[in-house]
């Protein structure tokens, strides 16, 4: 189980990313449209003034139940070990052991 503080930190990043998502997207579009360099720097300054944790690059997927940052499966939002346990317990619909 990951530390609760780390999980909360990640949740905070997600909230910030959602909050500033539209502002970031619009300013990035403006940068591509504006021809002069000085205007581009101004818009870039606006981007820099936003909190760093609002950048989507800072987000990291974590296991839904344990908060583990590695070996995550996007389809389930779980880490490998928990995924295996849940498949054996028949908690994931459609997932079966395979052999071919």
């Amino acid at each position: 189980m990951a530390r609760k503080s780390v999980i909360q930190r990640e949740k905070k990043r997600q909230k910030l990313e959602q909050k500033y998502h539209l502002i970031r997207r619009s300013s990035k579009k403006e940068i591509s449209k504006v021809p002069s360099l000085s205007d581009k720097w101004k818009i870039h300054g606006k981007l820099e003034s936003l909190p760093r944790n609002s950048a989507p690059i800072r987000l990291h997927r974590r296991c839904f139940s344990t908060g583990r940052p590695r070996a995550n499966y996007r389809d389930f939002g779980l880490s490998g070990h928990i995924l295996r346990e849940m498949v054996h317990a028949c908690l994931l619909p459609g997932a079966t052991r395979s052999s071919w």
């Binding site: 995924l83 295996r84 498949v87 459609g94 997932a95 079966t96 052991r97 395979s98 052999s99």
Partner: peptide
């Protein structure tokens, strides 16, 4: 390792 599958 263990292999799981989902057939749709």
């Amino acid at each position: 390792k263990e292999q799981f599958e989902m057939e749709i």
